[in-house]
Design a protein around this nucleic acid. Structure first.
Lengths: 197, 197
DNA sequence: GCCGTATTGACATTCAGTGACACCAAAGTA
DNA sequence: TACTTTGGTGTCACTGAATGTCAATACGGC
C-alpha cells in the first residue's frame, strides 16, 4: 500500500492526511464522534479548519478512509481467483482475504467497530460502504461469469449471501468482545450458508 | 394503522406530524434532500423550525417514519407464522407480507427509492434501518425456535439470506424503472437463494 | 532568484440542531 | 365557572459542520 511520492508537496500532504486520521480516530475513540470538533482535530497540527475540509470532504470521511479504498482492491482479488472456481466459492475467498488485514491489528478493528456501534450516523455510512462493495463485487462477478449464465439478480444474491456470512461473523466476533479468533467464526458462518436446506 | 386519538391535543399533533411528512417528502422529491431546508418545510404550516425538531429528531427522520415502525410489525408477523413452518420459510413469508404495503402505492415506493439512491446519506440510514429489522427478526427467530437449535449465528444467517433476497429483488425492481411486477421478482429471488448449491 | 500554479489561511455565510425561557391553550380540579 | 397544572409552541441565541471567496504563501520548473 505504498504510495509514490512525486515531490515534497505530495509528501507533506500525505503525512498531514495520515496525521489527521490518526489524531481524529484517537479523539473519536476517546470522546466519541459527535463530541469531537474539527477544531480539536486540527489544533495539534496547527492547521486551519478550512484546510481539514480540503483533505476530507466530511468529518465522517476521516473514519472510512481505509474502507472506501477497499472496493477496488476486492475486485482485483476476485479477478485473481482461478477461472474454474465456483462463483460463491470465489466471492467467499475474496472476502476471506480481508481477514488478514483485520488480523494485522485486531485491537484497532475492534475499536473501530465500537465506534460504529455507538454512533448511528457512522453505522449508516458503514452500511453504505458495504453496499458499494456489494455493487462492485456484483459487477465483477457478472463480468467474470458472463451475464448470460450470471444475470444481475443471481450475481447480486450470491454476493449478498457471502456478505451476509461475512457481516454475521464479524458481528458475532464483536459481540464476543473481540476475544475469540475470527477465522473459525468466519468459516462456520460460510459453512452455515452452504448447508442451508 | 389507525391510531387512538385520546384528545384534541393528540389530534393536532398527529395531523401536524402528517402534514410535515407530506410536505417534506414532496419538497425532497422535487428539489432533492440536501437542497431542501427545514425552514422551507415548516413555512407552509406556519410553525417554527424549533417546533419541527420537537416532532422529528433530525431532518432524515422525516423520511424514515414508516420504516422505523416496521420492525415491531415484522416481529408480530413472524410470531404469527405456524409453528411447524421451517425457519427460512417463515422469515421469507414474513418479508413477503411487506409486498402488499408496497403494492398499495407503488409510485410512492418508487419515488422514495429514487430519493434514497440519489442521496447517499439517506441510503446509509436506509441500510441502518434494515439492520434494525435484521436484528429484530434474528431475536424473534431465536425466540421462536429456541436458542438450543437456533444459535444466534445461525439465526442471523437465515434472516440475512432472506433479507438479501428481499433487497436484491427490490433493487432489481428499481433498476427496471419500477415497471415490472414486484412479486414475481421476489419469488425468483427467494428461489435463487434456496437453489444455491 | 523569478514566475506560474497549487495549496493554504482568514473571513464570511448557510444551515442543522440545541438550550433556555416565556407564553398560551388544553386538561384536570374544585 | 374560576383556578391550577401541564404540554406544546415561538423567540432568541448559540454551536458546529460545511462551503465559497479571495488574498497570501510555498513549491517546482526555469
Amino acid at each position: 500500500m505504498t504510495i509514490k511520492l512525486a515531490n515534497l508537496r505530495e509528501q507533506l500532504k500525505a503525512t498531514t492526511r495520515q496525521e489527521l486520521t490518526r489524531i481524529g480516530l484517537d479523539l473519536f475513540l476517546l470522546h466519541g464522534f459527535a463530541n469531537t470538533t474539527i477544531d480539536q482535530i486540527v489544533a495539534p497540527l496547527g492547521i486551519s479548519k478550512r484546510t481539514f475540509f480540503r483533505y476530507f470532504k466530511t468529518k465522517e470521511d476521516l473514519v472510512f478512509e481505509w474502507q472506501t479504498q477497499m472496493a477496488p482492491a476486492l475486485v482485483l482479488e476476485l479477478n485473481a481467483r482461478p477461472r474454474e472456481e465456483a462463483p460463491f466459492k470465489a466471492v467467499s475467498e475474496t472476502l476471506f482475504s480481508l481477514l488478514t488485514r483485520i488480523n494485522e491489528n485486531p485491537e484497532l478493528a475492534f475499536a473501530l467497530m465500537r465506534l460504529l456501534k455507538e454512533t448511528p450516523s457512522l453505522a449508516g455510512r458503514d452500511m453504505e460502504n458495504r453496499m458499494v462493495w456489494e455493487q462492485a463485487l456484483t459487477d465483477a462477478l457478472m463480468e467474470r461469469e458472463g451475464s448470460k449464465v450470471m444475470p444481475r439478480l443471481k450475481a447480486r444474491i450470491i454476493v449478498g449471501m457471502a456478505m451476509t456470512a461475512w457481516t454475521s461473523a464479524l458481528d458475532e466476533w464483536y459481540a464476543g468482545g473481540g476475544n475469540t479468533r475470527l477465522r473459525p467464526l468466519m468459516e462456520k458462518a460460510f459453512a452455515l450458508i452452504k448447508e442451508q436446506e
